[in-house]
Design a protein around this nucleic acid. Structure first.
Lengths: 342, 342
DNA sequence: TTGTATGCGTTATCAG
DNA sequence: CTGATAACGCATACAA
């Protein structure tokens, strides 16, 4: 593999001139530049990124860290963020982080390595203390998740944008109640969940309370730690279990569309018809909800807006045009075929 | 941000000693090592990866390049590959490449930057000439896709593992024919497709021919270039169009499960019942096919095996334990609820 | 407009 | 076992 030196030698110029050619520097003779670029192309020379990053004090790049790429919900967001980033002439790095990995460490390392200007966290992150965040010395925004900040009065150290999971979950549950359901089962996250799973469960409980319904523990299903994920299979399996207590509920609310789909299947397999015999509702607004049969009543998260706000927020900070802030976007209750009044 | 020098100074040792501590070198006093690690922890020192990559002549790492992260089919494969990679004490880099980006360039650059030992391409890649591949000087395997190699006699320059898209597609179509269908519509890729889309269409045509059925162009639907993707929405829209010629077909074969789901929805919305009024089949074996209503007849690609073989192949070459070879794995015809005999 | 020389943070070599 | 020091490939200040 050749280096910039080789190219310089071949071209009969100094390395800096080659460097200038590569990096679109203004002060270089157009002819020499063209000649150099020609040679570069012929020799398939590719600058070594490590060396560049090492030398450069800054770069125009941001990164998105996604926890568990499995969530199809993020795909659209990533697409939009990437597009928007490129429109701003920044380069975009997508970094996946393992479920058990510490995204903060990954972030800090990445910032060092790539000299990032900012970071976006997609999902995860909730369990970290603000002390840990202090080490991250570039602006960042938590998208689709936030940690509860005890000190609301102070100027926040980061931005966040998400829907109000508690309120939206309340909205869905309340809709079911108002539709006449009084026995509403829920497929929830793990018992120890401290993130959106918890919020959505709390919204459910609150709505029940306000509708004078006492929660029935036997129809509150939890995912199992280290075993279940937000998958159709999980929804299916938990629903199967629940179906043994068939007379205990008239509606099922799954805190994610993927779970809801699995639940639907389990119900349908018993010969029951949705929503005639049982209503089913989800959360997220995944594409499958539109095309599933029956189409799925759900809370749609405003994906495009979520992404747009996220990227705008970040660039505002980067360009010193604004402060960090917490943005909450409204979700949308989509009543479709899978639920009915009773 | 502190560097290795700072740490050395603080510890009162030389940089090389710190380096030894970091990199688990054998020849270092355990006590000094522990002391150094302590200081490192306290100061949150993180080595600069760029500098490391620059200096190191090699690293134990491989990368997976995925074209268009959108395909849920790849998620499982990635998971398995990653797991397997870590078991072999290699680090794993997942790199997404844009739909319009040249994955080969990305690969070459990445190899340089990270000193990779090998590469796995997931999807894409088909349109490149073997000349282009010559620049890639580490072993690589094409997973889930391959380019037709004119010179089969020579020892291949890379490995590939995939199902036989032509044969599997033939299998599905033939099944439909044998089930009594003679008017089988297909939702295919773009007209100019040169990859799996083409193979699957050809398998369909061949099967029709062998069953003495003349292809009917009016029920061969193509995705539109630069507009459609393998999404439910595309399947839905194309199916809507096709439904105007309702009497022209008794079955629909979509070359991807995602398309099939959209098609199912379009059919169901007309009030027709699947499979009573129309059979629908897909391809891939996505999770949704199991939980969709009706569950989807499809060709299941052996995801786990695909992934395992891929990673094994790569490591065999890396460790000089084997030659490059082309592996074709059998798909599995899963007859479920969405199709019936007529 | 161009070339030379320096240093980015690490690892590896070699001498202690 | 440890410490100086020379690369790694590039960008840039400075000199020409």
């Amino acid at each position: 593999m050749e280096t910039i030196k080789d190219i310089a030698r071949i071209c009969g110029v100094g390395v800096s001139t080659v460097s200038r050619a590569i990096n679109n520097h203004p002060d270089i003779n157009p002819e020499t530049k063209e000649m150099i670029m020609q040679v570069i192309k012929e020799h398939n020379y590719i600058p070594n990124n490590s060396a560049r990053n090492l030398k450069r004090s800054e770069s125009k790049a941001i990164a998105v860290l996604v926890k568990g790429i499995t969530n199809p919900f993020f795909n659209d967001m990533i697409g939009i963020i990437e597009q928007e980033t490129q429109r701003k002439k920044y380069s975009f790095i997508l970094q996946r982080v393992e479920e058990n990995e510490n995204e903060l460490d990954v972030a800090i390392q990445l910032v060092k390595e790539k000299k990032l200007k900012g970071i976006i966290f997609l999902g995860g992150i909730i369990t970290h203390s603000s002390e840990n965040f202090a080490q991250l010395d570039v602006p960042f925004v938590l998208s689709t998740s936030d940690i509860v900040n005890e000190e609301d009065n102070k100027a926040p150290l980061w931005s966040s944008v998400s829907v109000d999971d508690f309120a939206e979950s309340y909205k869905m549950t309340d809709y079911l109640c108002k539709a006449g359901h009084r026995k509403i089962a829920i497929i929830a996250a793990t018992k120890g969940d401290e993130s959106i799973g918890k919020l959505r469960l709390e919204g459910y409980l609150k709505a029940l309370g306000n509708n004078n319904i006492r929660p029935d523990k036997s129809i509150i299903l939890h995912m199992e730690e280290n075993k279940d994920s937000y998958s159709m299979e999980t929804g299916y399996r938990l629903m199967k279990k629940l179906l043994k207590e068939r007379d205990k509920f008239t509606a099922v609310y799954a805190i994610a569309d993927s779970l809801a789909v699995g639940a639907c299947r389990a119900i349908t397999e018993t010969g029951a018809v949705i929503p005639r015999d049982c209503s089913v509702a989800g959360f997220d607004g995944l594409e499958i909800g539109t095309y599933y049969n029956p189409s799925l009543t759900t809370i749609r998260q405003p994906v495009e807006e979520l992404a747009k706000v996220t990227i705008d927020l970040l660039f505002n900070i980067i360009r010193k045009n604004g402060q960090h802030k917490k943005v909450v976007l409204p979700g949308e209750l989509l009543v479709r075929e899978s639920t009915r009044e009773i």
